[in-house]
Each structure stands twice: as structure tokens, then as C-alpha cells.
Design a protein around this nucleic acid. Structure first.
Lengths: 201, 201
DNA sequence: GGTTGCTCTGTAACACTGTTACACCGGTGG
DNA sequence: CCACCGGTGTAACAGTGTTACAGAGCAACC
């Protein structure tokens, strides 16, 4: 009946993903939502993989520039990391998308340019600067991915208690700090600042 | 024909996972490998989810104690982190297993006890020590998860070149250091050492 | 007008996946 | 003998990605 376009397909797919996540997006559901047969989608986008790739591209493309502020180099890098983390967490479907397609590296790209700039401005050059950039990138992306994974599994604690009993911490404040659900932003900033202070010092 | 046991099911499942990964483990393949109908597996283990949970438990259980050496506190924590990373990377199927079941937290448990010990021995107490332990744990688990994800997608680079051209780095050595495939162990040790030196300093 | 050719859509199928209702078979206890 | 129960098999349900094939609609050319 009504003709569909590659763009309308991507629009609807994006909407479905934002509503119920990538794990609930199927070609048949997408076709039904468009009021069309499955084959039309395949004709327009080709594949489920390229469909998801296109969605990743869209999300990446509409990520605004990351903000950099702070007077000291450390504070500027920390602000880059924070901005990057917020950007990713503000798009909850992004992590699922890149994970399904193995495109985790694109999550590290936004910060790359700004980090290179700050590192060289802070006096690092050559391989030293490259390693510093990569270290911070890995910390940002790794932290965010892990954070998202943990928040999904926080409801059902793991069945393995092999380790819980072995801890036997005498320091009550330390034990409380470990058993508390972590304040993500606080731990993130603390970690990044510690890392960067050491890399730049 | 031949009776099967919960243990034989788990043994065979573990073997199949080690051979071709969790993503290629299906109840029917497992049943065929056991020479039995699917329903028998369901009778013995109940579910696919509990099956995977059992496999995770097995892998976790056979992880030996992590080794701690080094004279300074920093070196000892770094050695803990390295040992933990090796333990995870030596079990390539582990990451897939915990990821499928959302049990990423179990990957951080082995290091917990040793890290608490070292942090308190280094003079940290209370919430400070707790935050330090969590920071290092997040860095270890996040780094390893990201590392594994990136090595799988290294073959097919992402289709997004929005950022590649924007970089325009003048420092050739820096550019080379960023485009090179990263030496995982080197970057990992460098990052952990930087983080820990700052946390303990 | 008739015919060809291209774009796009629909039907129906293939080969999978996890899961389960139900029948059956063999042994053990009453 | 018979009933029960642990364990197995058959066959199905609902869902997934993907595709071979047939057909509509429309433009262009003879």
C-alpha cells in the first residue's frame, strides 16, 4: 500500500529501540509497525546488521560536541570525561546498540580529539601522550559499559557467595562503603581524576 | 537410551562453550551432543538461564587464588590487577558467559579481598579505602570487558568516519601511537599503576 | 496500444531458537 | 498385578533472521 523509505524504516526502528530496547527489536515487529511485509525492509536496508549500524551512526551523529571547562589541565580532562559519560548515559539505547554490533570503539571517538588537544597542551608528546589518551579513553568506555551492565543486573544478585563470607572486613565504614550501591558519578570522577593526575604529574 | 546426569549435561555444555562459544550453544545442539532429546535437559537443569548460571559458577569456582607480589603497595596492587586480568583472559568463554547473564559483578569479586587487604595495609581506611577498592575494581573489569569487545570487532572497523578526518594530529609519533593496535597488557599496567599511585599518594 | 523492464511489495517457506504439553517406557513398592 | 514415579521421546507453539518467488504498479520505448 503506502510506500516506505529507507528513512522511514530507520525512523521507526529508532523509535522502537527507544521504546523497548534493541533486544526487543525484530524485523517482523518493525514491519508490522510500518504496516508492511518483512521483505520490504530487507529491500530498503538490506540486513538487520546494517540496520543496527545505521542506528548507531544516527545516535553518534546527533551527539553534540563535548564541553571542556576548568582551568587546570586535570580539571579539563576530567570535564571531558564527565561530558563524555553523560553523553553516553543520556542515550540509554546506545550501549545496547554498540554492544550488539561490536562497535564499542565508536563510544571512545567523541573524546579522542579533545583529549589529544588537552594532553599536548599539558606538555605531553609522542607515545607518552598517545598512551595517556588511550588510558583515559579505556577508562571512560570501560567504566560506562560496566556501569550499565551492573545496573541491569543489580536486581538479581549473583548466586555465587563463595567470596562474600571470605571478606570478613573489620573496618565497618569500609565494609559499608563496599556494600553500598555505588554513586556512579562520584566514583567515576574520583577515578578519572586520580588517573589523570598521575598521568600528567 | 543412556541415562544422563545433571553433571554430564553441565560437562558437555561446558565443552561446547569452550569449543565454539556461548553464542553457539543451543539446547538442541547440546541434546544432540548428548544423544538425547531436548526435554531431558530441561528435566535435569530446568532452564537455559540456570544452565548458564551453573556454567558461570563452575568457571568462577575453578579460578585459583590471585597472586600478590611486589614490595611497595603500588606494585602489589598492580600485581593483583594483572593477575586478575590474566585469570579472566585465560578463560575466553567467561566474558561471554557473564555478559549473557548480566553477572559482570562476579568478575570483580576475586580481587576484592586482596585489594581490601592491600589498601588498608597501605594506610587507607574507611570510605577512602572503599572508594579506592571500587575504583580499581571498576578499572580492571571495565578494561577487560572493553578489551575483549574490541578484539572481536577489530576485524571490521566501524563505518563512521565522522571523527577520523577531524583529528588532524600534527605530532606523527602521537598519531602512530593512537592508530596502532594497542598492546593490552602494557596499557593496562600503565593505567592501573597511574590510578593506584594517585589513590595511595 | 503493446511490451519490456525496473522498483517495490506480499506470500510462503527454510532453518533456526527456547520451551512445553503429553505420551510412553522401565523399574520399584504395595 | 498394578500403581506410581523418574526419565525420555514426539510433536508442537511461538518466535527469530532471511530469502526464493510471484506479483503489482509505473515509466519508457517500439
Amino acid at each position: 500500500m503506502d510506500r516506505i523509505t529507507r528513512d522511514t524504516v530507520l525512523d521507526t526502528a529508532m523509535r522502537l529501540v527507544m521504546e523497548s530496547g534493541i533486544e526487543n527489536l525484530s524485523m517482523r515487529k518493525l514491519a508490522a509497525e510500518l504496516g508492511v511485509a518483512v521483505t520490504s525492509i530487507y529491500w530498503h536496508v538490506g540486513n538487520r546488521d546494517v540496520l543496527v549500524d545505521q542506528l548507531v551512526d544516527r545516535v553518534i551523529a546527533d551527539m553534540g560536541a563535548i564541553s571542556v571547562d576548568g582551568s587546570t589541565p586535570v580539571e579539563r580532562v576530567v570535564s571531558i570525561a564527565r561530558s563524555c559519560r553523560r553523553m553516553i548515559l543520556d542515550r540509554p539505547h546506545l550501549v545496547g546498540l554498540v554492544r550488539e554490533r561490536g562497535l564499542e570503539s565508536v563510544m571512545m571517538l567523541p573524546a579522542r580529539k579533545a583529549l589529544v588537544h588537552e594532553m599536548t597542551a599539558a606538555g605531553l608528546h609522542g607515545a607518552r601522550a598517545g598512551e595517556a589518551v588511550q588510558a583515559v579513553q579505556y577508562q571512560i568506555a570501560g567504566f560506562v559499559m560496566l556501569e550499565r551492565a551492573l545496573e541491569n543486573s543489580a536486581a538479581e544478585p549473583p548466586a555465587v557467595d563463595h567470596w562474600r563470607g571470605e571478606l570478613a572486613i573489620e573496618d565497618p565504614e569500609l565494609a559499608a562503603s563496599l556494600s553500598n550501591v555505588t554513586d556512579g558519578d562520584r566514583l567515576f570522577v574520583l577515578s578519572v581524576r586520580a588517573l589523570v593526575e598521575s598521568l600528567l604529574g
